[in-house]
Nucleic acid binder design. Structure first.
Length: 562
RNA sequence: GCCCCAGUAGCUCAACUGGACAGAGCAUCGGACUUCUAAUCCGAGGGCUGCAGGUUCAAGUCCUGCCUGGGGUACCA
């Protein structure tokens, strides 16, 4: 666990303001929140705060004058090398370079915990993601979902939250039947029967394949039994197999779940009925046209929870998704007691966000505990060409095909090179291209290069675990590399706070670039300078650890050679 | 019609949720391998942040209106 330098700088500045007030260099006013940022320009130091720009009214002084008085009263701090007043009234803080050098040892001591922080202080967070309908293979959109959810979960873990990953299986309602009907038709056809395909059935070839396999394994068993029962049984069997496949494919993407939660259990346990009653008693339910509507002052329109028998004959198929969500959100926040439930949804579901939050509020829960991350769509490309996809016609590229074609590393990395708010083009050609256009290999190459140095050093008789004098790490490129490594905990904090997993891919690239610059400037293994070699080997090990940590959070492998 | 997301360098995108001269990568042009991996590095050019107003000491970021692209708007999931 590391205390963020950002926070240390903030309290350092705060001390300066307080001491200036005690010395009556500044008038009394309540201590403000100290916003600390990393300046874009290196000339502006390692950290900066514009806080004095906001204090002009409180202090009745010009911002630069305030900043000067704060700086005059700053205490001493070992990590601070210099403080300047700059521009309109910024306070710029530069880290002490010998302190920076010493952090190399600190990083190495952190081991696999380096970069972990205690933002979450043990709060329990559930991240529910993918949750694709179990009626077909995982597609590209769900792949983005998987990567965002998984890396966000990892980042939250590193930030000190207790995280559980959950896949919500939509196995209630009409999908089972619809899928069963499609499967039944293909099954019968596979056995030579002249069975018509349902009008709104699943057209994909995978249904044909699965039906053929079932026909081979089960023979004519389900043609001879009661038809609705056969459809039901085949539907359940099919969903089971789709889920097995999804689990395997996601595992190949290195995404695994703590819980596969079945929607059906929300009804079997009677929870749905109990909560409907609760909502009814509290005035959130109206019934009209035979349907049960959820009505809330927070919504512009009522939403159906249970459809009318005139529209849907089967009682089991009447509750809508939102109906299930009533029970599900209660299950998450009350029965299982998560402090917070994060949902990862595609942009095509954004319209449901206010409804789920309104449901939570109507149940008496704090809607802020329900957090929904909306990510934009993925366009699959081959070079400049769009890959045409039609889910209805069953034509789409599956996660399995993407893994077979490009492998998990590029999929994971490239899908996290955009904010969740931006639509993303995923170029299958670029993903496998091992060139400077592909940032995955850029970062992995840096790691392989580091390992190569360590191998070479060992060959030359250096003990890789030898301790060196890190105070020798004074070169500009050595310092820049350490400073970049020291950013990791803050990147984790930011990615966790802002739910911005893409931060990690940007950071990994910056760190790799900083390492390559160091490599250019500084020879590591040099017989004639044993002390410096030992110090630099420590630095290289720390760099390896930091890069591996960033890649580890991304779920991307850190190869020892390429 | 209404709701959500985006519009930033030739292209693809960042920008620490209001802070300093708006940054990367790719592409283009010019350089660097008898040295621990050239899948690398160095340098150069490239901008009215879609448009028009407004708020603020300070706006790519906030508010209003428009334009363009994508998504949504069912007793679908």
């Amino acid at each position: 666990m590391t205390e963020l330098i950002r926070d240390q700088v903030a309290s350092f500045i705060q001390d300066g303001i307080r001491l200036a007030q005690e010395a009556e260099a500044l008038p009394p006013f309540p201590l403000p929140h100290i916003g600390v940022e990393r300046p874009r320009q290196v000339a502006h130091g390692d950290y900066a705060t514009p806080v004095c720009l906001q204090l002009t009214e409180d202090a009745r002084m010009a911002p630069r004058a305030i900043a000067t008085r704060v700086v005059d009263h700053l205490p001493t701090a070992t990590f601070v090398g210099g403080v300047d007043v700059a521009g309109p009234g910024y306070i710029n803080v530069t880290l002490d370079s010998s302190w920076v050098a010493r952090q190399t040892r600190h990083i190495l001591e952190g081991g696999h915990k380096w970069g972990h922080i205690n933002l979450g202080s043990g709060n329990r967070v559930q991240v529910e993601f993918v949750s694709a309908n179990p009626t077909g293979p995982i597609t590209v959109g769900s792949t983005r979902n998987a990567v965002i959810g998984d890396v966000l979960a990892s980042v939250l873990e590193a930030a000190g939250f207790l995280v559980e990953r959950e896949y919500y299986v939509n196995d209630a309602g009409s999908q089972v039947r619809k899928f069963g009907e499609s499967l039944y038709a293909r099954y019968a056809q596979a056995l030579g029967e002249d069975e018509p395909f349902p009008a709104d059935g699943y057209l994909g070839g995978y249904v044909v394949d699965m039906a053929a396999e079932l026909a081979r394994q089960l023979g004519r068993k389900y043609l001879e039994s009661d038809r609705p029962e056969a459809i039901q049984a085949l539907g359940e069997l099919g969903i089971e197999r789709v889920l097995d496949q999804a689990e395997a494919d996601l595992a190949a993407l290195r995404v695994t779940f703590d819980t596969w939660f079945h929607e059906r259990t929300l009804y079997e346990s009677g929870l749905f009925d109990r909560l409907l009653q609760r909502l009814r008693e509290n005035g959130f339910i109206t019934e009209r046209e035979g349907a049960v509507w959820f009505t809330s002052p927070d919504l512009e329109e009522d939403a159906v929870l249970v459809r009318s028998p005139q529209v849907i004959p089967d009682p089991a198929e009447r509750p809508t998704y939102l109906g299930s969500d009533v029970a599900y959100v209660w299950n998450k926040l009350v029965e299982r007691g998560f402090d917070r439930a994060i949902y990862v949804w595609g942009a095509d579901h954004h319209g449901d966000v206010p409804r789920v939050r309104a449901v939570a509020k109507a149940l008496g829960l704090d809607p802020d505990r329900v957090e929904i991350i909306i990510y934009q769509m993925v366009n699959l490309k081959r070079g400049a060409q769009d890959v045409r996809m039609s889910k209805r016609a069953g034509e789409f590229v599956t996660l399995r095909e993407m893994i077979d074609e490009v492998g998990p590393d590029p999929i994971r990395f490239l899908l996290l090179t955009r904010t969740v708010d931006a639509t993303i083009d995923f170029d299958l050609d670029l993903a496998v291209e091992q060139s400077e256009k592909n940032p995955v290999y850029y970062v992995q190459y840096a790691h392989a290069r580091i390992c190569s140095i360590l191998r070479y050093a060992a060959e030359q008789g250096w003990d890789p675990d030898d301790e060196g004098d890190v105070s020798l790490l004074t070169h500009e490129s050595e310092q820049a590399l350490i400073r970049k490594m020291l950013e990791l905990p803050e990147i984790v904090a930011h990615a966790a706070e802002q739910r911005a997993p893409h931060r990690l891919t940007f950071y990994a690239q910056e760190l790799a670039a900083q390492f390559h610059a160091f490599y250019r400037d500084c020879r590591v293994v040099a017989e004639e300078d044993a002390e410096r070699t030992r110090a630099r080997l420590m630095l290289v090990r720390a760099a390896r650890m930091t890069l591996a940590q960033a890649l580890g959070l991304l779920g991307v492998t850190a190869p020892e050679q390429m």
